[in-house]
């Protein structure tokens, strides 16, 4: 009985296998497996790293109970007690905050200007900003370091130099996102506003910006995330430990004798980024709903 059933199942499997070999793209059966495996591969290590941040023991590879020891309970080694780790967290937040505050308005103006401006310069300006996207960070880091040390010496290494670096490499993301939205909107709304007697600034403020807000918020989220993520620029332009960011700290101690406090630091950074993104998405959703647009936030980000 069982053997018959087994044989039946086997031949069915064989048949399916043959069918699949003949036509691997028939019905995508392998694809969901690949996708799920990829997602597990990309996310599980992070979850494990987060789990060890709550370890009660010192190990970062053996589960030893649960505690907040590495967050604040340990008087010397926790993120809260260790000045280096605490400083890194605040430096990351400071830079990301500055980057968002400066880059988003600067990039939005750039996007509007470049999209509407029909001149010889606009193509070149667009090419330059796209070039920042594919320039390896080490190249930009070197370039900025040399410029601040040799030419623009009034910009000291540390927060000012790092902030300028972050703004420079994140500008293009605002440009891409806002410009994409602008092209989708088209110039009609502004023209209508102009026909109704609005000045150019008024037309931007009253007709364009309300439609751009979702894209602006989305770009703010991206800028925050890539600023928190940045390592090379922050390292090259750091003036020392007091301006090291979280990734720089991870790099410096990740190779030596880190405690789970390093995991805790990374987890906190992640939590902050996600909180910021969640807040942004909420805002985005509210703005979007106000406009009755059904495109999902994630798809918007992806595009």
């Amino acid at each position: 009985m069982t053997s018959v059933a087994g044989a039946g199942a086997g031949s069915a499997r064989n048949g399916r296998l043959r069918e699949w070999i003949a036509n691997p793209w028939g019905k995508p059966r392998v694809l969901p497996l690949v996708t799920v495996a990829y997602l597990a591969w990309s996310i599980l290590p992070i979850l494990i790293a987060i789990r060890f941040s709550f370890n009660e023991g010192r190990s970062r590879s053996t589960a030893q109970g649960w505690s907040f020891r590495w967050y604040w309970e340990d008087p010397d080694l926790s993120v809260w007690a260790d000045p280096d780790l605490r400083t890194a967290l605040f430096q990351s937040l400071r830079l990301a905050g500055i980057a968002v505050l400066v880059t988003v308005p600067l990039g939005t103006a750039l996007a509007i200007g470049l999209t509407r401006w029909r001149g010889r310069g606009s193509g070149a300006a667009r090419a330059v900003s796209l070039a920042t996207l594919v320039t390896p960070e080490i190249v930009m880091g070197t370039a900025l370091l040399l410029v601040f040390v040799n030419l623009l010496t009034f910009v000291p290494l540390g927060t000012p130099a790092q902030a300028i670096g972050h703004i420079t490499f994140s500008l293009v993301f605002v440009l891409i996102i806002v410009r994409g939205r602008l092209l989708a909107i088209g110039p009609e709304y502004e023209e209508a506003a102009r026909d109704l007697g609005a000045s150019r600034l008024q037309a931007i403020r009253l007709a364009l910006l309300p439609m751009l807000w979702p894209a602006i918020v989305a770009s703010g989220i991206i800028v925050f995330a890539i600023s928190m993520d940045d390592f090379v620029i922050s390292q090259f332009l750091s003036s020392g430990t007091n301006t090291d960011t979280v990734p720089v700290r991870i790099y410096a101690t990740g190779r030596t004798a880190p405690t789970p406090a390093l995991n805790a630091l990374a987890t906190l950074t992640l939590a902050v980024t996600i909180a910021f993104a969640a807040l942004g998405f909420l805002l985005w959703w509210l703005l979007k709903r106000a406009r009755g647009d059904r495109e999902s936030a994630l798809e918007h980000l992806a595009h």
Binding site: T153, G240, T241, N242
Partner: peptide, 21 residues
């Protein structure tokens, strides 16, 4: 008192002599 670390003499000398710190 605030302490900042360097990891190699090369790096430290470069920064000290640049006058940028």
């Amino acid at each position: 008192v605030e302490e900042t670390y360097f990891s190699t003499t090369d790096e430290a000398v470069a920064k000290i002599s640049s006058g940028a710190v």
